[in-house]
Nucleic acid binder design. Structure first.
Length: 732
DNA sequence: CTAGGGTTAG
């Protein structure tokens, strides 16, 4: 080890080497200690330049490599490298490799190194390509990747399996699995790594069928699967939810005595967890001697998918260390289970512990804000996104559109959309959906037209948004045309959700015969949603016979479907079939139909208030109820009469009236009117269930009497109440 | 002689 006086950043002297020579400098550069700093290297650099040793490129390159070793940021190394004329291949490749394998170094910088090598016209040989292609893959740089492909062809390296494998990987990562496959098929010799990368490419593109086909093909061509490729296949099984294939792989591992290391074990647990087979996952997880980050995170997301939040949280709390992925998984679990406040709380806790979020974390946090529906929080997270450099990320912007729409601000959603530097189908679909949610069918259709003009291909989800918009706006002909063009023009096979929209489209327009025809002619068996749509239409138009039929089909599939039970009991009551009413009531009591408790949230002065029905937990409870009865009396003057149709419990009429008056959205409105006095500000309420008819009327009248705009988000859509009218035109 | 592949969050 070179004895260097303890240099600090402030005493930049190099006393031992007044005159540098190649040998001593080399010694110096190869004898790095943990205390060597960039400052030391800068001195050596100066020595080299002063002693005119810089014509010896190898010395400078050694300096470059030395700085790679000691500094996580490769900026200094890069700056020295760019000043080396005609770097030689061996050291350049080492440098490239250093760059491409370094986690912190951005792939774009590796490509800069490559460009420099190209410009100097030397230094590129077949050993350079794997690293360069890896960088192009990481950066998803298709244009550069293709140029590199061209160069490899020109230099005659395209018979080198390492180069070919790199090309397969590059195309696969840039979204060109087809091109990857072309390169793969032309390879004369395919080893297990080549197969592995090709299979992983299909996995990344979500083409799981191809994954399994190719894997079988590989086994057929006498290549024995190893642990790594088995991991890849298991991951595909997990993501495709193919438990059968996953189990078969597990059996293969056992039958062939393949040693299961901790990584393969993690893959097995992750596969079972992703397939929702938590019992098997848990069993294997329990057997692991040391539970690493990855496998614990897989367990968290497995539990979360099944809605088992307590188990997810328990696993999370038991983790000795947590990285950003684990935090993100837990935050996402809360966000997706409609527990947004806990998701946001966890996000704060994570930051306090010094863990920086990445863009996936942001997606979950944005989704949490969307669930919460609080516009102030939404604005806050948007600022956070911009300040922390996520503003340019496509998926983040897509999530922001959805968030603003769900927080009631179509305008802000549109602003995000307009400002986006790049847009994809999801961006357009999110915007169409945003309009649909707000009952703005005209703009939904106009976004669709603009999307077509820009040659963006719509997908099945796009049409769900469009059909939803049409059905809620009563645009029957337009909806029919869109449905036809989806099939004929865009070759998209309609799924359940599309047929559901069509049933809704006709049902809402009182075209019940057509609605029934859709149900009868659709090529797959109708599901709960389809029968539910038909039933709702029948209820709205008093079509009891068909309504009863639909409700019964629904109950065959979901015996405790609360909506169906209510409709049936109302139909029977109307027809005075008291025996049947009694039967349904019994069913309702036994099935515990109130599985989801209704609640409403309102955000006032940056504080979120939450109410259940007849809730008395709020600190201003007395004022809220006092104000509510005042409001009720004032509304009665303009014709309000409590409507108890939606009350399911068996109560006396007078009691039912009280129950209706204490619905959570009315409590929220009462507080809103108490606290927010300014007539220009809109009162925003978020409800987890559908708004009932009585509350809907109540909101309409309040908007007129108090000259306030009221925005209520219910389970599926927005209601803008203004001047006594609602944007949903009383169809919901 | 210096080169390529695996598990987790959406």
């Amino acid at each position: 080890m070179l004895s260097m006086p303890s240099l600090t950043q402030t005493t930049l002297v190099l006393p031992v080497l007044p005159k540098a020579n190649p040998t001593t400098t080399t010694t110096l550069l190869t004898a790095l200690s943990s205390s060597t700093t960039i400052a030391h290297l800068k001195q050596v650099h100066a020595q080299i330049l002063r002693s005119k040793l810089d014509r010896s490129n190898s010395l400078l390159l050694k300096l470059v490599l030395a700085s790679c070793v000691i500094s996580p940021s490769l900026d200094y190394a890069l700056s020295v490298f760019t000043h080396v004329s005609n770097p030689d291949a061996l050291l350049s490749n080492k440098f490239l490799r250093e760059f491409s394998t370094r986690a912190g170094a951005s792939a774009e910088k590796t490509l800069l190194v490559y460009e420099k090598m190209r410009k100097d016209g030397v230094g590129v040989d077949r050993f350079s390509f794997p690293a360069i292609l890896k960088a192009a893959s990481k950066a998803s740089a298709l244009a550069e990747g293709m140029e590199i492909h061209g160069l490899a062809l020109k230099l005659g390296f395209c018979t080198d399996p390492f180069v070919d494998t790199g090309l397969v990987r590059m195309y696969a990562s840039c979204g060109g699995v087809m091109e990857a496959r072309l390169v793969f098929d032309k390879m004369s010799r395919r080893d297990i790594v080549a197969w592995s990368i090709m299979i992983d490419g299909y996995c990344q593109s979500g083409l799981f069928d191809k994954v399994f086909v190719l894997y079988e093909e590989m086994k057929y061509s006498d290549i024995k699967p190893d642990r790594m490729i088995l991991s890849t296949i298991l991951s595909a099984c997990g993501r495709a939810g193919n438990l059968t294939y996953g189990k078969a792989i597990h059996d293969f591992i056992i039958d062939n005595n393949i040693a299961v290391d901790s990584r393969l074990q993690s893959s097995l647990v992750a596969m079972y967890a992703s397939c929702g087979s938590m019992d098997l996952a848990k069993k294997m997880f329990g057997m692991m001697s040391s539970k690493n980050l990855v496998v614990s995170t897989a367990m968290i997301s497995g539990y979360s998918k099944l809605g088992q939040l307590q188990d997810a949280r328990l696993t999370f709390d038991q983790m000795a260390e947590k990285d950003v992925v684990a935090w993100s998984a837990m935050i996402s679990a809360y966000a997706e289970s409609d527990w947004p406040q806990e998701a946001l709380r966890l996000f704060n806790e994570m930051q306090q512990l010094g863990v920086s979020p990445d863009y996936v974390t942001m997606l979950s946090v944005i989704s949490a804000c969307a669930h919460l529906g609080a516009l102030d929080k939404a604005n806050w997270i948007h600022i956070y996104v911009n300040r922390n450099g996520f503003g340019g990320t496509l998926s983040v912007n897509n999530a922001l559109i959805d968030m603003y729409a769900k927080c009631g601000s179509l305008g802000r959603a549109r602003e995000v959309f307009e400002k986006m530097p790049r847009k994809n189908v999801i961006s357009w679909t999110s915007m169409i959906n945003a309009c649909a949610m707000h009952g703005d069918a005209v703009n939904a259709l106009s976004f669709f037209n603009k999307m077509k003009e820009r040659n963006v291909q719509p997908n099945g989800v796009t049409f769900v948004g469009l059909l939803y918009a049409c059905s809620h706006a009563g645009l029957v002909d337009e909806g029919k045309k869109l449905f036809a063009s989806m099939i004929d023009e865009y070759n998209i096979a309609p799924k359940h959700e599309h047929y559901g929209c069509m049933v809704d489209l006709f049902g809402r327009a009182n075209l019940l015969r057509e609605a029934l025809e859709v149900v009868e002619t659709m090529p797959m068996a109708p599901n709960v949603v389809i029968w539910g749509s038909l039933m709702a239409a029948c209820r709205n138009y008093g079509e009891s016979q068909l309504g009863e039929f639909a409700a019964k089909r629904l109950l065959e599939m979901e015996p405790d479907h609360d909506g169906a039970l209510v409709v049936l009991s109302n139909i029977y009551a109307k027809e005075r079939r008291w025996d049947d009413v009694g039967k349904v009531r019994n069913l309702m009591e036994n099935s515990g139909i109130f599985k989801e408790r209704g609640f409403s949230r309102i955000e006032l002065n940056d504080e979120v208030h939450e109410f259940f029905m007849a809730d008395k937990r709020h600190k201003q409870t007395d004022e809220i109820y006092e104000n509510l009865s005042r409001v009720v009396n004032e509304l009665k003057l303009v014709g309000y009469a409590p409507n108890t149709c939606s009350v399911l419990v068996d109560l006396e009429e007078e009691e039912k009236k009280e129950v209706v008056l204490w619905h959570s959205e009315k409590l929220a409105l009462s507080l809103g009117l108490l606290i927010s006095k300014s007539k220009v500000s809109c009162i925003r309420i978020v409800k987890n269930l559908r708004i009932c008819e009585d509350c809907h009327t109540f909101m309409k009248l309040s908007s007129k009497v108090y000259e306030r705009e009221i925005l209520v988000r219910d389970r599926t859509r927005f209601h803008h109440f203004k001047d006594g009218l609602c944007s949903c035109k009383d169809f919901w």
